[in-house]
């Protein structure tokens, strides 16, 4: 009702009747160094590549078409596969971990969550590097196998797709745990008890009641890992050893080695498109889940 929210707004507006002045510097900064560059990239995707690199300002759809060229489309599919696999594994592990944390005594949950997130705060490169040490031929896993008496030939671990997936899961797992913990911890424990009371066993209760109500967390976790993985170029570069390319590496190459900026721009447009599509899906998933909750 209008007159009841009025006092709060009045109080805020007393500070400054023109809040726009406060926002102007930051918005100007974002416009200059984010909006403008991104719009430029958008435009760039529709220009031709110059003969000696650089840009020829002639309109073309070639770059967009090139994205669908089998060679590049395959890289897209491959990246999507790796990202999807990593996101799936991260969500399964992360959800289990979050569930286990919510099952812990209330006073210990904050501490467990803190330590689950702690690695996320450290340097990404360093965390990725740690897996080089683990997976190296002279690395820790090899060393451990040897120490256990295994002296046969170990399969190659570093510089494989598996290594890339491990690296991505490792780096983004803490976020997934957080994302899944949020809806799990908000669940009213009496809901699970009510389901049991009505005759559902533990598994049924989980599948029919808890899982549907925590879909938003799962969706957030999945989208986050997928989006960050598909555009990632650090992990494939370090743990994949340049053996195979993902979109991130392709974009990187267009700008820093192949010098085909318009094509690089077109590739990043698709990256953004995929991201926005997924975010929309995620919003939809959360809205549906919260709708379901209201109906109950």
């Amino acid at each position: 009702m209008h007159w009841r929210i009025a006092p709060q707004i009045q109080a805020r507006r007393m500070i400054d009747r023109k809040p726009l002045y406060l926002m102007t510097p930051a918005l100007a900064w974002l416009t200059a160094f984010m909006v403008a560059p991104c719009l430029m990239i958008l435009a760039l995707a529709f220009f031709q590549r110059g003969i000696y690199g650089g840009i020829d300002y002639t309109f073309t759809l070639e770059n967009i078409a090139l994205v669908f060229d089998p060679l590049y489309a395959n890289i897209f599919l491959k990246s999507a596969f790796i990202a999807g696999l990593s996101a799936t594994i991260a969500v399964v592990i992360g959800y289990a971990a979050a569930f286990a944390i919510t099952a812990a005594p209330a006073k210990r949950q904050a501490m467990l969550l803190f330590f689950a997130v702690l690695p996320f705060w450290s340097n990404y490169l360093v965390r990725t590097y740690a897996w080089i040490v683990m997976l190296n031929r002279e690395g820790l896993i090899a060393g451990a196998a040897q120490w256990l008496g295994y002296d046969g030939e170990l399969p190659k671990m570093l510089y494989t797709e598996t290594a890339v997936v491990i690296g991505l899961v490792y780096n983004y797992l803490p976020f997934v745990i957080l994302a899944c913990y949020a809806p799990l911890s908000r669940l009213n424990p009496e809901i699970a008890e009510a389901s049991r009371d009505l005759g559902g066993n533990g598994w049924t209760t989980f599948r029919r009641v808890i899982l549907p109500m925590t879909v938003p967390g799962i969706a957030t976790g999945f989208v986050f890992v997928f989006v960050l993985s598909i555009g990632n170029f650090v992990t494939p570069a370090l743990l994949g050893g340049g053996q195979f390319q993902m979109i991130g590496n392709l974009v990187y190459a267009q700008f820093l080695t192949a010098n085909d900026w318009p094509f690089g721009a077109a590739l990043s447009m698709f990256l953004i498109a995929i991201m926005m599509g997924l975010l929309t899906l995620q919003t939809y998933a959360s809205e549906r889940a919260s709708g379901a909750r209201r109906e109950e």
Binding site: F33, M34, P37, C38, M40, I41, N232, W261, S268, I272
Partner: peptide, 13 residues
């Protein structure tokens, strides 16, 4: 926004 996109956008800009 993916880092790589912002990075190349700023580089081109």
């Amino acid at each position: 926004i993916p880092d790589i996109v912002l990075a190349i956008a700023l580089l081109s800009f």
